[in-house]
Measured scan of single mutants.
Amino acid sequence: WLKDDEATHCRQCEKEFSISRRKHHCRNCGHIFCNTCSSNELALPSYPKPVRVCDSCHTL
């Protein structure tokens, strides 16, 4: 799980985070992405409801 202060850019699109481009953790891989690159939800065994995942984890 990557800490918020360790990420300054989206792991996928590499756009810089700002007040309007917020950080979101993928609940599967733990990396930090922008909203555009992590707008999917997936049912994971460790969560009772579908949770936010990055595009890469969603296509696995």
Rank of each mutant, 00 (worst) to 15 (best):
W1I: 14
W1L: 11
L2K: 14
L2M: 10
L2W: 05
L2E: 13
K3P: 00
K3V: 02
K3C: 00
D4G: 07
D4F: 07
D4H: 07
D5K: 10
E6S: 08
A7Q: 13
A7W: 08
T8D: 10
T8L: 12
T8Q: 12
H9V: 07
H9I: 07
H9P: 01
H9C: 00
C10A: 01
C10Y: 01
C10G: 00
C10L: 01
C10T: 01
R11N: 10
R11E: 13
R11K: 15
Q12H: 06
Q12R: 05
C13A: 00
C13Q: 01
E14S: 08
E14L: 04
K15Y: 07
K15H: 10
K15M: 04
K15S: 10
K15R: 11
E16A: 06
E16R: 04
E16F: 06
F17W: 04
F17G: 01
F17H: 02
F17E: 02
F17P: 02
S18G: 11
S18T: 13
S18D: 13
I19S: 11
I19Y: 05
I19A: 08
I19K: 13
I19T: 13
I19R: 10
S20W: 12
S20R: 10
R22H: 00
R22Q: 09
R22C: 03
K23W: 06
K23T: 07
H24V: 08
H24Y: 07
H24D: 06
H24R: 04
C26G: 01
R27G: 14
R27S: 12
R27V: 06
R27N: 12
N28F: 08
N28R: 08
C29D: 01
C29L: 00
C29F: 00
C29Q: 00
G30V: 01
G30A: 04
H31A: 07
H31E: 06
H31K: 09
H31P: 01
I32W: 15
I32T: 12
I32Y: 05
I32M: 14
F33Q: 04
F33L: 03
F33M: 04
F33D: 02
C34Y: 02
C34K: 03
N35M: 14
N35G: 15
T36P: 14
C37G: 03
S38G: 10
S38L: 07
S38P: 01
S38D: 02
S39I: 07
S39H: 04
E41D: 08
E41N: 08
E41G: 03
L42P: 02
L42I: 15
L42A: 14
L42N: 05
L42S: 13
A43C: 09
L44M: 10
L44N: 04
L44H: 05
L44C: 04
L44P: 05
L44A: 05
P45G: 07
P45R: 12
P45V: 09
P45F: 07
P45H: 11
S46M: 13
S46G: 15
S46E: 15
Y47H: 13
Y47L: 10
Y47P: 04
P48Y: 02
P48L: 06
P48T: 05
P48N: 05
K49C: 09
P50G: 09
P50N: 11
V51D: 00
V53D: 15
C54S: 01
S56Y: 14
C57F: 01
C57P: 01
C57E: 01
H58N: 06
H58M: 09
H58A: 09
T59H: 08
L60H: 06
L60E: 12
L60T: 10
